[in-house]
Amino acid sequence: MSAQLNFEVPTMAEMIAKGEEPEILFWVGCAGSYDERAQKTTRDICKILHHVGLKYAVLGTEESCTGDPAKRAGNEFLFQMQAMTNIEVLNGYNIKKIVTGCPHCFNTIKNEYPGLGGNYEVIHHTQLIQQLIDEGKLKAEGGESFKGKKITYHDPCYLGRGNDVYEAPRKALEALDAQLVEMKRCKTNGLCCGAGGAQMFKEPEKGNKDINIERIEEALETQPQIIAASCPFCMTMLSDGVKMKDQDQNVKVLDIAEITVRANGL
């Protein structure tokens, strides 16, 4: 899996300069932009978009934090400042449809931007992957075989409970012919990885266990070969958990976009 891309990722500025409009804007998000592990997922989402020939663009350096962590932490001012600035950029480019690489960005833009003047059709990348599979544009072939492999999927709170998206990520995994095993707490009853509500950016309060350890223990009970994630924060928490349990040699934590790219040999 080469980490780098063998094609250019188009930015909105370039597209507009060429007089073109993308079908969809890929909202990368802060983690997807800066976090090394999440960057891999970001590139893989681009590979998928490139592979299926969907006309897409990113904002590049014009993108800024959606304001999600500020809002969850209680700083509504900062959230709305970020939101209104972003909406100005998005509306300036006449954006209609957005795919995000992060459930937090997804939730914020989809649910909280409309009230501030930002109305877009917003989907999460697992929903895009599911759509592409349904349309026959993506198949699980030409790459690594996941047939029979045990995969357990961790529901991110802001995708699952937050927005009732439970099926799309699972459909993407079912296409692999893998063995999907559910954790005891899944779907509406899924356990948080511990990073939501701005916890990602602080030390946990005093307790007797870290939340990601509680979660990873449950994930490991299913004896998976792969723990599938679809959120960069969950990715960090789950990967850390697997390392803490000394299982990182046996169990991989992969984003659904990464799994899709591997299965298709992109």
Binding site: G32, S33, V58, T61, F201
Partner: peptide, 25 residues
């Protein structure tokens, strides 16, 4: 507080330059 300051100053919850936001590509 640090996270909020970073968003305010760099447009990201971590202390990274906005100019580096597209480096992943």
């Amino acid at each position: 507080g640090t996270m909020l300051g970073n968003i305010e100053n760099n447009g990201a919850p971590w202390k990274y330059s906005p100019a580096d936001r597209f480096n992943w590509a």
